[in-house]
Simulated scan of single mutants.
Amino acid sequence: MTRALRRCLPQILTLLALVALVSIFFPQFLAISFENGRLTGPVVDIVKRGAPVALLAIGMTLVIATRGIDLSVGTVMAISGAVAAWTLAAGWGVFPAVLLAIVAGLTCGLWNGCLVAYVGIQPIVATLILMTSGRGIAQLITEGRILTFSDPAFAWIGSGTVAGVPVPALLWLVTGIAVAFIMRRTALGLLVEAIGINRSASTVAGINARVLLIAVYAASGFCAALAGIVATADIRGADANNAGLWLELDAILAVVIGGNSLLGGRFSVAASILGALIIQTVDTGILLAGFPSEYNLVIKAGLVLVILLVQSPNLSQHWHWLRMEIRRQREPKPIGSRDTR
């Protein structure tokens, strides 16, 4: 078993357990069909609807690895979606809309990175500034209304398919593979982890911590821009008030469920994506099981708490100690020996 697979094994087992649990309440959960040139079914819906959180979790993983946090990713989604819809409404076309939306996300990420790296503001405060003000920026772009468009080429990003597979699912899959490849096949991943473990020591060792911090926040803004494009293309409109609302919390939760520490250091992009899929599976499973909508958040919170407890390193250590103690008690003792404890 490879190290990467061993690292993600708890999340894989958790996801499989959730799938089995949901299948008990909804036997058709794993049913997949091919209709009108596209794959359909609850599982397909999960990988599609989970795209925004998965994309946000990819960027959030890098930020948290540096012992930071980005509370503005939901707002950046709204800004990027508003920019894309405004560009389309102006008649500029799909390519400028996507390009300007990504530039808007990168700009927001660079702003956060500069506040953290050069001004020295704590990450939670620096990103909170954009989180609170960004909605107003998005509303200024859309003039306080839901800005709609009818461009089928842009809508394809949110609801189209490639060989039957939803485009949003392919987007987070390709993005996750690309980021993981860059981080693990180059020295960037090690440098990011070094900053998260001890920024001062990494600076003394010759690592340009400021540049790397700006880079990871820019990467988070880029991923948020992609999520904003997907969300806007899916509904064919920009809703500055609701786009990405509170998704930053789901993104942070996905990273935590993925076993990544909020104290920085070692990280796994694949585990964070699995965490996002776990969250979406919980959401979809609750709806398919027929629970009243009023109980959804409570049930989701309870399931997530159980997942985190099962994955807790302290709990794992206690279970390991208990198994060793039981094994020691079962071992036959030599004749005449006494327990001197």
Rank of each mutant, 00 (worst) to 15 (best):
L212N: 02
R236D: 03
G237V: 09
V269A: 01
R266N: 01
G221E: 05
A251Q: 05
S268Q: 05
A289V: 00
L245F: 12
L253W: 01
A224H: 04
L226C: 10
L288F: 01
W246L: 15
I229Y: 01
G290K: 14
G258L: 04
A233C: 09
L212M: 05
I252C: 05
N260H: 09
I252R: 01
I207C: 06
L226I: 14
R236V: 00
G285S: 13
G228Q: 10
A227G: 15
A276Y: 00
G228Y: 07
L262E: 12
Y217D: 09
V269H: 05
G206E: 08
W246E: 13
I257R: 06
L226N: 08
W246A: 13
C223M: 11
Y217A: 00
I278H: 01
A224I: 02
I279L: 15
L212A: 04
S220I: 02
V282N: 06
G221Y: 07
L249C: 11
T232W: 05
G259H: 06
A243M: 14
C223W: 05
S268A: 07
G244V: 07
E248C: 11
G221P: 02
A240Q: 10
L277D: 04
A231K: 04
L213A: 00
V269Q: 03
G265F: 03
S220C: 14
G264Y: 09
E248W: 01
N241R: 10
Q280M: 14
G258T: 02
A254Q: 09
S261A: 15
A270L: 11
N260C: 14
I273N: 03
G285T: 09
A270D: 12
G290M: 10
L226S: 06
A243N: 11
A251K: 03
I278L: 04
G206Y: 15
N242E: 12
I286N: 13
V256W: 09
G228L: 05
D239M: 04
S220V: 01
S220M: 01
L263Q: 14
I235A: 04
A251R: 04
F222I: 03
S268K: 06
V256L: 15
I252G: 02
I257C: 08
L226W: 06
A251C: 07
G237E: 08
R210G: 15
C223S: 12
F267A: 10
S220Y: 00
S220Q: 01
L262Y: 06
V216S: 01
A219P: 03
R266Y: 00
V256N: 06
S220F: 02
A251N: 03
A238S: 15
D250H: 13
I257S: 00
V269L: 09
S220W: 00
G244C: 08
I273M: 15
I279P: 06
I286D: 11
S261L: 11
V255T: 08
V256C: 09
Q280A: 06
V256Q: 05
I229D: 07
G206I: 11
A231F: 12
F291H: 13
D250C: 08
L277C: 14
A238G: 12
F291K: 11
S293M: 09
A225V: 08
G285M: 04
G244P: 14
L226T: 07
I279S: 07
F291N: 14
P292G: 13
P292Q: 15
I252S: 03
S272V: 07
A289W: 00
L262A: 12
T284R: 13
V255E: 08
G244A: 07
A238Y: 15
L263N: 11
G275E: 08
I207G: 02
L263G: 12
A240T: 10
G206A: 13
